[in-house]
Amino acid sequence: MTAITSDFSSAPVLPKWVVPVLLLAFAYGVVPLIGSSYLFEAILLPFLALSLAGVGLNILTGYAGQVSLGSAAFMAAGAFAAYNFNLRIEGLPLIGSIFLAGIVAAAIGIAFGLPSLRLKGFYLAVSTLAAQFFVQWALTKFSWFSNNSASGVMDAPRLSISGFALDGAIGRYLFALTIVSVLTFLAHRLVSSQTGRNFIAIRDNETAARIIGIPVLKTKLLAFAISSFIIGVAGVIWAFAYLRTVEPDGFDLDRSFQILFIIIIGGLASIRGAFFGAALIVVFPLVLSRLGGFLLGDLFDSGVLDMSQRIVLGALIILFLILEPDGLVALWDRIRRRLLFAWQST
């Protein structure tokens, strides 16, 4: 796991908060006015949910160096926990259900993070698969979780905040955007705090970290807890705001890999990277399908699309690992520096 922190010292830069604030202003002020329902439903909502999951996994894998293949399990735990809290606790506001769901996901994360105290790298990744299989099995096996629904597919509750309904596409978008923005901001604060530095220290040299007195075991479990909390909330957004149904099927191993790919392609140990990676993962199949349809016409059916999507994505990941292991973020920063340099020299 290499670290990604770019050296900005050569280029004149705006204060760090300017770009995020402008982006947020655009996302809140402009996008709802110009976006189509297709944009919200098919692009922005999955993008927001997957970005948040990427932020969560990046804390664990990118910063703390603990590889996990159980992300989708924590998403599922979050989604089902929020559904059940909402269903079974009378009068609990939606935001309370979501918070408690994050706590449940964090607890499960700690339980499945325990092997990290003894295992590293590849072996740890394999042991986190246990979370993936166990959670999915438990959710399917015990129908209590799905409120004894015959199909196992439940409708998500309608989104509302203090009586104000948010169930249109724009409302759900704003709901997701708010949660993602707040958690991302907190995650950003976390990784630049002492705790975040401890994560990086453990990733880069566990022995040295122990010798200088960083509580290694506690810090690893904390990374699992925080990461799972964020991924759990991402699961709620995925189910409640994007799909509007809660079911175990969407949270399979493929999803775990998808989130891992997001942070590898976007950039490990970078909060922005999760957004870059998620954007690519969400937009790429749509572009591919348009492009394929345009070039090949009817030959390009859904089977071909699915196959070509996997092939191209696989190739992309290999290319990134070889050519740009620091991900899209590093690529972006380099392009930006070049442009700034070119602009200055004219």
């Binding site: 705090s193 002492q194 401890n198 040299n205 200088i212 007195g213």
Partner: peptide, 29 residues
């Protein structure tokens, strides 16, 4: 045995991590 992903300043400051008593929530907020 340095922490490659941290700046020089942060590497040195990590030598004081054993003294830190605030928890992550306090640090984040």
């Amino acid at each position: 045995a340095l922490f490659k992903g941290l700046s020089v300043l942060d590497n040195v400051a990590s030598g004081l991590a054993y003294k830190v008593r605030s928890n992550f929530a306090g640090q984040v907020l």
